[in-house]
Amino acid sequence: MELVTPDIGLIFWMTLSFLIVLAILKKFAWKPILQGLKDREDSIKESLSSAEKAREEMAKLKSDNEKLLAEARLERDKIIKEALATASSLKEEAKEDASKISGKMIEDARNVITSEKQAALAEMKQEVARLSLEIAEKLMRTNLSDDQSQRALVDRFINEVKVN
């Protein structure tokens, strides 16, 4: 029975000493310990959040870079395409010009040839006429007294001959 009978003196000393230890520890131990723990946790939280922020910034920078790169790539493609178009149009133009020039040259050449041919033909006609006359003269020097009427005859013959 003594085991479960609280002793008044013990209750008194226990209450007193517990209050004292509570007061001492509250002021000199629990307050700095809990504050220290809280401070450390806060600083860890802060560091983590700043690390997260840095990470986000890095990601943003990276995406910015990628965007820039993509833009540059696009620009490059555009430039290349434009250059290609310009080149092909230039080529076309040059081709056209060349064909135009060559066409004209051919035309000119043809004209020259035609005129030369005409001239040559005329000259040839004259030469043929002369040669024929000479031949005829040589052949029939004697037969022909009247040179004038003979020549008219030969001219008529030559004209009747179609030269092609």
Binding site: V21, F28, G36, L37
Partner: peptide
């Protein structure tokens, strides 16, 4: 014992701040 242990610990908390 309690006071000695915990006041010593509290002291380390202040000197070891951060």
């Amino acid at each position: 014992l309690l006071c000695w242990i915990f006041i010593a610990a509290a002291k380390s908390f202040t000197t070891n701040r951060g």
